[in-house]
Computed example of a mutant assay.
Amino acid sequence: MTRRTASPLSLVLLGLGAFLLVLAPLLAWYVEPRAKRTPIDVDQITVFRGTGSYFDTEKIKTVHDQRLTITRQVRGDVADSNKKRAVWDVSTSVDPDKSLPAADPHDSLQWTLERWVTDRRTNKPVHCCGEEPYFEGEAYLKFPFDVEKRTYLWWDNTLGATVPLTYRGPKKIQGYEGYRFTGTVKATRTGTRQVPGRLVGLRQGQVLAEEWYANHGIELVADKRTGRIIYAAIGPRKTLRAPGGKKDRTVLLDSRRIGFTKKTQQEQVDLADDDSSRLKLVGTTLPLVSVLAGGALALAGGVLVARGRGAGKDGPRGGGRGPDPMGPHSDTSPSALQHSTM
């Protein structure tokens, strides 16, 4: 009996199928989690625009119904960042039309420079590398990966504390769906500033006035997979009060709503869609394709191997030769011929 072996094709199919079946969980459980890391080589500008009031230092009074623009630039510090932490330098300016374009950010109505350091996996604060300010909470500039339908603690730098943002359901921005979160900030004293007494209703020359801050409403829409903010709107109100006073005396900045421009919305949506698609490819699409293709190839290879072995066991014997025509029961066997010629 000749023993048949599996064909090379069946072994190749079986091996490739097994490889793809092993690859699927590797992509989903190992590669994708490591791909979920806050980027460090960023250089992005987002622009908010709305109308409101601000204190005009030339006119020495608050002017109303003015267009206001907030420009924020985020640059990653690649040198100070590493596998675990992301270091971002953030410049934010607030301008009325008359100070735009600002050749120097110091010419803006308000300008701040911040340095944010976060854990690249969890998005939590990392207190190192010249961080400024010291901040807490779960989110700032972005949400963590895989945004959940719950309340998040958002860091408000003007307040100097976290603000709870409540999940309000899905919302589409430029046709792209994200998760919407909202919150408000009640009037809170945030510091002091030396100003002429008349600005806070006093006859004294210079007084140490109290700075108060509130926010009419914060609305953020975040990409569900990456945590990138695809829409943001705020309603800041900054005022001055007399020392120990209960009433706002001078409005420094006030707007019911300043939000992302259409251009910024589209740019953020495009970036979120691109990043989310890559994560989906690695974490969902490729593992699913690997499972289906691997299962099909392994099944096909197994069937071919089984057929090959079956043919070797049950097929024709002796290399395909039939009964011996000279066998003992044949009419032409040697014994029969010998008997007839004796």
Rank of each mutant, 00 (worst) to 15 (best):
L279W: 00
T261C: 04
S290N: 04
K280W: 12
G283A: 03
L286P: 10
K262G: 13
L286N: 04
D273P: 10
V291E: 04
K263H: 06
E267H: 04
Q268P: 07
T285A: 13
L281D: 08
G294P: 01
V269R: 05
A298S: 03
Q265C: 12
A272H: 10
K262N: 13
A300K: 03
K262I: 08
A296F: 14
L271H: 10
L286D: 06
Q265S: 11
T264P: 05
L281M: 12
V269I: 09
G283C: 03
V291Q: 01
L286V: 07
V282R: 10
D275S: 12
T264Q: 07
L299P: 01
Q265E: 13
L292I: 15
A298C: 02
S290F: 05
K280R: 15
A298K: 00
D273E: 15
T284W: 03
K262D: 08
Q268K: 07
D274R: 06
A298V: 02
L286F: 15
D270S: 12
L288G: 04
S290A: 12
D274P: 01
Q266A: 13
K280C: 10
R278F: 10
L299W: 13
L288K: 08
R278Y: 12
V269D: 09
T285Q: 10
A272E: 06
V289R: 05
P287I: 00
K262V: 05
S276R: 08
T284D: 07
A298G: 11
V289P: 05
L286M: 14
T285N: 06
A293E: 05
K280T: 15
D274H: 03
T285G: 04
D273H: 15
G294N: 02
K262R: 11
Q268A: 11
G294I: 01
G283S: 03
L279S: 00
A298I: 04
K263C: 02
K262T: 15
V282P: 04
L299G: 13
